[in-house]
């Protein structure tokens, strides 16, 4: 069963995706980093990183290309990192400019969140962004994330000092927003409290 949303499918990474990934990394608007990187990343570098990935049952991260169902195009990628099994992970999203404003990013985010909460059984999902990226903040808020920490002036980008923002979405908050999915996984803390 693929990770499928309304507009997108999230699939495994392939060698042919690496050209687009290099292009996204070289665009200051889609690097999605709290600091700017030189636009000197090549497809070959990305292929090398891709080929270095090894099979494991203990994966703590994944990067999933976002496939636009209507056109079959790769619209960007969404990832999770720092997986603490059955507890937490952080997500990241990069959408190629032609797909900005098309709801592809939101659909990809919702599709990944369903996987993280319903399949991986996480208790919380985090993401990091900065105050100079209101598009990312707004998109996260549409899925229920809220800002839980603001580190002042921790980012310098585009000639400005910006705040780092930590955003989180707990399992309770996710399922409260999605009554169509039943959460049958008991919370260990609730069990101890006899809830």
């Amino acid at each position: 069963m693929p990770l499928e949303g309304t507009l997108v499918v999230l699939r495994e990474e392939r060698r042919e995706d690496q050209k687009l990934f290099a292009e996204l990394r070289n665009d200051l608007a889609t690097q999605a980093w709290g600091q700017s990187l030189p636009p000197t990343y090549t497809e070959e570098m990305h292929v090398k990183r891709f080929e270095a990935m090894e099979f494991s049952y203990q994966r703590t991260s994944a990067r999933l290309p976002i496939i636009h169902k209507e056109t079959g195009e790769v619209a960007g990628f969404i990832s999770y990192t720092d997986l603490e099994p059955r507890l937490s992970a952080s997500i990241g999203l990069v959408v190629a400019k032609p797909f900005w404003g098309t709801r592809v990013g939101l659909d990809a985010q919702e599709t990944l969140l369903r996987f993280l909460f319903s399949e991986l059984g996480l208790r919380v999902v985090h993401l990091w962004t900065h105050s100079g990226n209101p598009r990312a903040v707004g998109l996260a808020e549409k899925s229920g994330f809220r800002v839980t920490a603001r580190i002042r002036e921790a980012v310098y980008k585009n000639g400005k000092l910006l705040d780092t923002l930590a955003m989180s979405l707990t399992r309770d908050e996710y399922y409260a927003r999605h009554p169509e999915f039943a959460d049958t996984l008991p919370d260990p803390v609730d069990l101890l409290r006899g809830a």
Binding site: S88, T148, R150, R152, T170
Partner: peptide, 24 residues
């Protein structure tokens, strides 16, 4: 303190948070 990261882990039967602190 500049914020908290919820559900950082479990300890003694409850979730705890990571408290982020900063110094400019």
């Amino acid at each position: 303190e500049c914020g908290r990261i919820p559900r950082a882990g479990l300890r003694d039967g409850d979730y705890y948070e990571h408290v982020l602190v900063e110094l400019l």
